Simulated scan of single mutants.
Amino acid sequence: MKSSTLPDGMPVLSRGRHRWPRRGACFMEFASLLAGERWSDHPSCTHPLLGQLARQVNDCTSDAGRHQLVPLIPSVVGLRGDDRTSLTVAVAVAASALLDAPEGTQRALAAGLLRAEEVSADAGPRLATTRRQARSALDLVPGAVAWVQRLGCHDRLTLQTFGHRCAPTMIRCAVEGVVATGRPDCDQRLRALLEAGIAACPAPEPERASGPPGVVRARS
């Protein structure tokens, strides 16, 4: 780890962006510190969509519960993903939040999952598991699916277009949906969303996991 990036003491996990580690750190700023990167809440060590999810979960978790996210930080270091990551992460997170989301959010998530199902089918066998995951989630909310289908969206999306257009919205809606329920276990459910996203991001190849001495590696 680069000694120049280390403060006298490890920063406290807190909401929002921070100019210096001594003022605290959001989840992804802490990840940049562990990775030995320049201080940033958008470090290159983590796939951008997973980084978005981590920032939003961090900011929506209560001050009292945010410390429960700390053990997850090392697991995002090195998870840069691949061309499928925006799809696999978006589907996993949306599926996790779908059933208990408010009606409006549920419809938005169902719309994203329907598009994900189409893109997965077009991509062939390598996304068969993700396609099944999207379909299993959609089967739980037939009313939301029917509402989306009545809108009559017919344009086909590429994997890349889905990643740019749909995936970030699905992540935002999933987090907002959990918060909107107002349930007392909101912090735990937000953490579960982040865990689902981390699990859906492909682990790095051995050569990509290597780095300078002291850099924290993602997953053994």
Rank of each mutant, 00 (worst) to 15 (best):
Met1Gly: 13
Ser3Val: 13
Met10Lys: 08
Pro11Glu: 04
Val12Gln: 10
Val12Pro: 01
Arg15Cys: 04
Arg17Leu: 13
His18Val: 03
Trp20Ile: 15
Pro21Thr: 10
Arg23Cys: 13
Arg23Phe: 15
Ala25His: 08
Cys26Phe: 05
Cys26Lys: 00
Phe30Asn: 01
Ser32Ala: 13
Leu33Gly: 02
Leu34Cys: 03
Leu34Glu: 05
Gly36Lys: 03
Gly36Asp: 11
Glu37Asp: 14
Trp39Phe: 10
Pro43Ser: 02
Thr46Ile: 12
Pro48Gln: 01
Leu49Ala: 09
Leu50Met: 06
Gly51Phe: 10
Gln52Trp: 13
Gln52His: 13
Gln56Met: 14
Gln56Arg: 14
Cys60Tyr: 06
Thr61Ala: 09
Ser62Tyr: 07
Ser62Lys: 06
Ala64Pro: 02
Arg66Asn: 01
Gln68Phe: 08
Gln68Leu: 14
Ile73Ala: 00
Pro74Ser: 11
Pro74His: 02
Ser75Val: 10
Val76Thr: 05
Gly78Trp: 07
Gly81Arg: 01
Ser86Thr: 07
Val89Leu: 05
Val91Ser: 01
Ala94Gln: 03
Ser96Tyr: 05
Ser96Leu: 07
Ala97Asp: 03
Pro102Asn: 03
Gly104Gln: 13
Gly104Val: 14
Gln106Phe: 04
Leu109Gln: 00
Ala111Cys: 14
Leu114Cys: 09
Glu117Leu: 07
Val119Pro: 03
Ala121Arg: 07
Ala121Lys: 02
Ala121Thr: 08
Leu127Tyr: 01
Thr130Pro: 05
Arg131Trp: 06
Arg132Leu: 12
Leu138Gly: 04
Leu140Ala: 13
Pro142Ala: 07
Val145Lys: 02
Ala146Phe: 06
Ala146Leu: 13
Gln149Asn: 13
Leu151Val: 12
Cys153Trp: 13
His154Ser: 11
Arg156Thr: 09
Arg156Ile: 07
Leu157Asn: 01
Gln160Met: 12
Gln160Arg: 15
Phe162Cys: 00
His164Asp: 14
His164Arg: 15
Cys166Asp: 03
Ala167Thr: 05
Ala167Val: 04
Met170Arg: 06
Met170Val: 05
Ile171Trp: 05
Cys173Glu: 15
Val175Lys: 03
Thr181Arg: 14
Thr181Asn: 11
Pro184Ile: 04
Pro184Asn: 07
Pro184Lys: 09
Asp185Trp: 09
Asp185His: 10
Asp185Ala: 10
Cys186Ile: 14
Cys186Trp: 07
Cys186Glu: 14
Gln188Val: 12
Leu193Lys: 02
Leu193Glu: 01
Leu194Arg: 00
Leu194Asn: 01
Glu195Ala: 12
Cys201Val: 05
Pro202Val: 03
Glu205Trp: 11
Pro206Arg: 00
Pro206Gln: 06
Glu207Met: 08
Ala209Gly: 12
Ser210Gln: 15
Ser210Val: 14
Pro212Ala: 07
Gly214Cys: 09
Ala218Tyr: 05
Arg219Gly: 09
Arg219Thr: 10
